[in-house]
Design a protein around this nucleic acid. Structure first.
Length: 674
DNA sequence: ACACCTCGAGTTCT
DNA sequence: CTCGAGGTGT
């Protein structure tokens, strides 16, 4: 890297910006980074450094100014002397009522219990530390015990005092940093004007803005703050109630949300929640619920805390947001198996924080059952807060004369007739050389559950197919580097990386190879069963239907599908290509981990902290347990990541199945008992 | 024949 | 996450 930046900062800045933009594009538009993240980070840091030294060189379109491309910057860890606990959530009236009941019981008398109500601001929790009235440190919540040092960034937030009058020796103020909706819109208007990508939602923008390495960027982002809690305090006044905490914070000059009020009766919380649910959009900031805390600090102490959260507080989370929008079209996409899936193309609408434009409609019967028609106004929501879902039409707004939707007769990709077998719900394209099926099959082979070939994603597979470099998955292992450079205009380096990850894929376990072959009804679980029963692909290749269906968990239909697959000439040639390339066909060795989970069936839901879902599931299997994807009576326990609500969790609660945290599970694996 | 578990497949947006 | 359908036990 050039060391002459002192001599020619202007030139160096231009050089860095050009390089960063180039790599941004590779990384975000194509899924093909050319340089390691660390190198990218180094360039970005150098750019920010120069811009700091020469503020006159800073331009708004500099790559240092875009949050979207946030490099994985790290901040110094800060240990919270008093942990920032998370709150238990209630998702409906009943759970709220249950909390009220527990509070009554815990306090043990019939007198009215006062409760403070606050809005649950959708922002980032931070803790700000003052010593002798001076702001000395600010940290994010992190995992509650250790957060990140964002002092420089927090200092740029104008509503947060940098020094206090009449302050105690030590004072930690806790609250929520957020971006007002108006500021968010203003920022996006500027972004749009400049032709840059706009930000998705205020919360993420606030998070990105606060975690800027360059605090000057944070300063421009118009972040704001509501305080609601004290952390460590030395030499402060005697406070006996939560609402006195608010008054005290106000007296020190901190913003306290005006909606933070005292309710005289704990039973009032239900109507209070409902009222805010109605009014939530009248505010200039986003809220995702209402928080209730027992007002008397002495009662709080009496109620105490569980390992994860205080018993004296509860956060009521609003139900998922539903929005209406126009159904512009119903289109059909062809998957790797030939299945034709109808999906809705919608007038873009923001639902629960992201813009939704597409939503699956699953199949013809679903479209029929929902009776949605092109031109309808439809209700859209997020299933599990992630996947957009069309709930149904708003019939009162249906224009006259809308026709029922008819499933198209022909494949949108190859034009052949679509078939809907009798007694089945799906339409299929039966053409094995349909471009959508070919590229889908190859993408699937390279995907993570199968051969996990990095750098061979959707974009490239499509391109290679178009250019005739790939006709089936066997061709992956004979790709010609010279042609790659020519067609994709790839650099030598990315070609080398791609070939390297292709090479690595040759040693994947047999089960992954089987998954990659795209045999109908053979996914991860069935593939693992086949792999351990047959031990080698050569054995499976010559197996009869009887032999395959004799295996536990595999019936006549799957067996027929497997044998049929291996009987096809095209497929045999694929297998031959893989064999010739030296792809691993041998079965797995037995794991030697202690079988502490033998006989247990443990379902996982939500986002874990220390593992990916795949990792935790194979960990469970390696210890002799099962990890199916849904909860049933036979389930031993449900592991829940985060505090997410899910249908699995509801079901587990109905069935009285124990719910474990990630840590609980690790303990179970160690000890073998629940 | 039926109920209940499991599994595969497709899906959205960042 | 959701849906449909395969596998197994009754």
């Amino acid at each position: 890297m050039a060391r002459d930046r002192q001599l020619d900062p202007v030139g160096r800045v231009e050089e860095l910006r050009a390089a960063l933009r180039h790599h941004n594009e590779l990384y975000y538009q194509k899924d093909a980074p050319e340089i390691p993240d660390s190198e990218y980070d180094a360039m970005l840091r150098e750019l920010i450094q120069i811009e700091n030294d020469h503020p006159d060189l800073l331009t708004p379109d500099s790559p240092s100014q875009t949050v979207g491309s946030s490099a994985t910057t790290t901040f110094a860890p800060v240990e919270h002397r008093i942990p920032m606990m998370s709150l238990d959530n209630a998702f409906d009236e009943e759970e709220l009522q249950a909390w009220v009941g527990r509070v009554h019981k815990g306090v043990g008398n019939a007198t009215d219990i006062k409760v403070v109500a606050e809005l649950k601001i959708d922002g980032l929790a931070v803790s700000i530390r003052y010593e002798k009235g001076k702001l000395v440190q600010a940290a994010t919540r992190g995992d509650g015990r250790v957060g990140e040092d964002v002092t420089a960034n927090v200092k740029t937030i104008s509503v947060i005092p940098s020094s206090l009058k009449n302050a105690p020796e030590v004072l930690e103020v806790r609250g929520e940093v957020y971006m007002p909706i108006s500021a968010f819109h203003a920022l996006n208007a500027i972004e749009q004007e400049a032709g840059r990508k706009t930000f998705a939602n205020p919360r993420n923008t606030a998070a990105g803005s606060l975690r800027q390495k360059n605090a000057a960027v944070t300063a421009e982002r118009q972040l704001s703050f509501w305080s609601y809690q004290l952390g460590e305090i030395v030499g402060g006044p005697e406070l006996t109630t939560q609402h006195q905490v608010f008054d005290y914070l106000r007296s020190l000059g901190f913003p306290v949300n005006p909606a933070s009020v005292v309710l005289d009766h704990v039973d009032d919380i239900i109507t209070h929640s409902e009222s805010w649910q109605q009014q939530r959009h009248s505010l200039d900031y986003e809220i995702d619920g209402v928080v209730f805390k027992v007002d008397e600090l002495s009662l709080q102490q009496q109620l105490g805390s569980t390992a994860r959260a205080p018993r004296w507080a509860i956060a009521y989370k609003f139900p998922p947001e539903e929005r209406t929008t126009k159904l512009l079209a119903i289109e059909v996409s062809i998957g790797r198996t030939g299945r034709a899936t109808p999906y809705a193309r919608l007038e873009p609408v923001v639902v629960a924080g992201s813009t939704v434009e597409f939503a699956t409609l699953h199949n013809e019967d679903q479209v029929e059952a929902k009776d949605v028609r092109v031109g309808d106004t439809v209700i859209v929501r997020k299933a599990g807060d992630v996947i957009p879902e069309v709930v149904g039409p708003v019939l009162s707004e249906r224009p006259k004369g809308l026709r029922k939707w008819k499933f198209p007769a022909n494949c949108p990709d190859c034009g052949q007739k679509l078939f809907r077998p009798e007694n089945e719900v799906d339409h299929r394209c039966l053409n094995t050389s349909c471009p959508a099926r070919v590229s889908g099959t190859i993408e699937h082979f390279a995907s993570r559950g199968a051969m996990d070939i990095e750098g061979l994603g959707e974009q490239r597979v499509k391109l290679f197919c178009q250019e005739g470099l790939l006709r089936d998955v066997g061709d992956i292992y004979s790709l010609d580097p010279e042609k790659l450079v020519k067609f994709d205009k790839l650099g030598d380096l990315s070609v080398r990386n791609l070939l390297e990850s292709i090479e690595k894929s040759k040693s994947r376990p047999l089960a992954n190879v089987l998954v990659g072959l795209n045999i109908r009804h053979v996914g991860g679980t069935v593939a693992a069963t086949l792999a351990s029963s047959f031990g080698h692909l050569d054995n499976l290749e010559i197996a009869t239907e009887e032999q395959v269906s004799a295996i536990e968990g595999i019936g006549p239909i799957i067996a027929a599908s497997v044998v049929e697959w291996f009987s096809q000439e095209e497929n045999r040639s694929v297998v031959q290509k893989l064999r010739a390339a030296g792809v691993n066909f041998a079965g797995p060795e037995k794991s030697d981990a202690p079988q502490t989970l033998a006989g247990m069936s443990i379902v996982v839901t939500g986002a874990l902290e220390g593992f990916t879902r795949d990792e935790i599931e194979s960990l469970i299997v390696a210890h002799g347990g099962k990890s199916p994807s849904s909860v049933s009576k036979k389930t031993t326990a449900l592991v829940v990541g985060g505090d997410e609500r899910s249908s699995k969790r509801t079901k587990a609660e109905e069935l009285g199945i124990p719910i474990l945290s990630e840590q609980d599970l690790l303990k179970v694996i160690e000890t073998g008992t629940l």
